[in-house]
Amino acid sequence: MKETGSIFHPRFMIVLVVLATLILLVPAVGLNFGDPITSSTDQYYIDHSQVETGANNVVASIVFDYRGFDTLGEATVLFIAVLGVAMVFRRLYK
């Protein structure tokens, strides 16, 4: 049998992956595409974002105003990832 990167038997892994895909296919068939059910929050954003933030782009008003703290964390993650890349490469090519 071909060796794999895992400590488990490869046949077990294949069965696991197929099972996971089948489990994921159940809600995929159940959801209805093109008609989202839970959309009250998004409808609020669409209706009120222009009055509350003044931006025409609703996505920009969500990213930078309603969820601005999320974007601050995202910018920090990007900063730290780049810091890690720089640190790793400085040790490689001194």
């Binding site: 933030t53 003044g54 931006a55 025409n56 920009a60 008003s61 930078f64 105003d65 601005g68 974007t71």
Partner: peptide, 9 residues
Amino acid sequence: TAGTIPILN
């Protein structure tokens, strides 16, 4: 328009 959003952008 849009206040601080262009600055944050």
